[in-house]
Design a protein around this nucleic acid. Sequence first.
DNA 1: ATAATACGTAGGCCGGATTC
DNA 2: GAATCCGGCCTACGTATTAT
Length: 305
Amino acid sequence: MELYHLKTFVKVADEGNLSRAAELLFTSQPAISAHIKALEEELGINLFQRTPKGMRLTPSGELLYQKAAGILNSADELKSEAQSLRQELVGDLKIGVHTDFEFVRIAPLLQNFARKHPKVRVHFLAGMSATNIPDVRKGNIDGGFFFGPAKSADLTTIELATIPIRVVAPATWQDRVEHASPEALCALPWIYTSQNCPFYDLHSQIFSDYQCTPNQVAFVDSEDAIRELVKAESGLALLREEDAKQMEQQGLGYCWAGEVPSIALSFAVQKRRRSEPLINAIIEEICSLWGVENESTNEMMIDSA
DNA sequence: ATAATACGTAGGCCGGATTC
DNA sequence: GAATCCGGCCTACGTATTAT
């Protein structure tokens, strides 16, 4: 029995799906299938019940899952302890990035971090605010950027900046939008994000004081897609001010003059892993890059209801 | 759609031989 | 006796495919 067998066991149990677990472990589905089979043969127990929809833990599997997770935690602690004794950081860090890499300063972050910690390999994984938070909680990634508040007691979040937001309309709609009241805007077609995206709440905030329901014509989560749809005159949308202004300068959009609530850009890690050397190092670098006090992290913890 | 199987491949491990 | 080299074997992987 190897540690990677246990890692696979725990991941498959978490995901309930071999293919998804394989993706998260950066390996193939047959490899994962073989791990589970080898473990089951060695233990002489069926850990999972195979179904057409995936893998479900058996009662014995449920019991052994807790043990396996405990062993993996102990192994992580051992590694962390050894790293602090060496005072040299080694290993892999997986960071979820929810928006464009330039905006969250990934290039300088990597440059500075690699100079200080040459033996750490950093994986930047494209995601979304709505996926980065659960992925951090599940341990699929070590840390993640996101917009908006995090409603999870097991996370430590660091607010890096307040990002101004603007309503941007297709450039040809200037006449319709320039002097439009919020009620008039509401009646125009809107490109929305999905409900689990923090931008969705921003839309609600804008119209909360007015008795109107926005005319939602499309729901997309990618900023690229939002820009494309605005360009294609499909509707209005919320964008970061920097993006909105750029579209306006390029003649591809028109920014509505009215005020829109801003949104927080934050970085999250698991609260229990906050003091791990690797986690601490990346937080230190991110804070330095954004000019934020590292100590402020504790104050940013948000308890769930 | 998802898991399991077949098969080829590459890298790592092990044991014997050799050197210091 | 310890360290190093080298060849053969093993194993974990990926791709392709099949089964459920």
